[in-house]
Amino acid sequence: MPDHELSMLCSAAISETAGQLARRLTGDDPQTEQLARLRVLAHLQFAVAQQSDQAAVDAVRSGAGYPQLGQAVGLTRQGARRRWPGLVTVRVDHAARAVQPFSPPTDRSR
């Protein structure tokens, strides 16, 4: 599917979802519905960013590198590296001689 078609489908899905959620928040009050829609869109934007970051981690765990991450989101390899610095760090397991993708630490307090 071409990117412009995917973009139109995504835009329609977000518009429909935002409208449904805004109506759930406001009932039948059209005056406050648009502000509720704006609030919903802000939350959706944050949720999409979280989902994108998790999808990048999952892609790396499946063997993707910065070139593939960049291609998936319309960035160069360097752009993907800037967006997710340190996500793709290659570690060599000398016993098995296998290259494994970086796994982000679960405890960031160290």
Results as ranks from 00 to 15, higher is better:
A36F: 11
P30V: 01
A22V: 08
V57I: 15
L21C: 09
A22C: 08
V57K: 15
Q50D: 14
D29V: 10
T32S: 07
L35V: 02
A64Y: 09
E33C: 03
R23P: 02
L41Q: 14
R37D: 01
D28N: 09
A59G: 00
P30S: 11
T26C: 15
Q50F: 08
H43A: 00
V40G: 02
G27T: 04
Q34W: 06
E33Q: 14
F46P: 03
E33K: 11
A36M: 11
G63P: 07
Q51I: 11
Q45V: 01
Q31R: 13
L21D: 02
L38E: 02
A22Y: 10
V48C: 10
L35R: 15
S62E: 12
A36P: 10
R61A: 12
R39S: 11
V40H: 06
A59K: 06
L38H: 11
Q45M: 06
L21S: 08
A47W: 08
L41V: 04
P30N: 10
S52I: 07
Q31F: 05
G63Y: 02
A49I: 05
R61S: 01
A22I: 07
S52M: 13
D29S: 04
Q51P: 02
P30Y: 13
R23G: 00
Q45Y: 14
A56W: 05
Q34L: 01
R24M: 10
Q51G: 11
A42P: 00
G63E: 00
L44Y: 11
D58E: 15
A49G: 12
R24C: 10
A22E: 02
T32H: 10
D58V: 02
L44P: 04
R61T: 06
R61D: 00
A42Q: 12
R61I: 01
L41G: 08
R39E: 01
V40M: 05
L41D: 05
A64K: 13
R37Y: 04
L44H: 07
R24N: 07
D58A: 14
F46Q: 11
R24A: 12
V60C: 15
S62V: 02
Q31V: 10
Q45A: 13
L35S: 13
A59I: 06
R37A: 03
S52R: 14
A22Q: 05
Q45C: 06
L38Y: 10
T26M: 15
E33S: 04
A42E: 12
V60I: 11
L35M: 11
A36S: 13
G27N: 12
D29G: 08
Q51L: 15
Q54G: 01
D58L: 15
A22W: 06
V60N: 05
G63D: 00
A55M: 10
D53M: 11
P30F: 14
D28G: 01
V60K: 07
L44N: 00
D29Y: 00
G63F: 00
G27I: 09
T26R: 15
A42N: 07
A42K: 11
L35Q: 13
A59E: 08
D28P: 03
G65A: 05
E33D: 05
A59C: 06
L35K: 13
L38D: 10
A55E: 01
A56H: 01
Q45R: 15
L41M: 14
T26V: 14
A22S: 14
G65V: 00
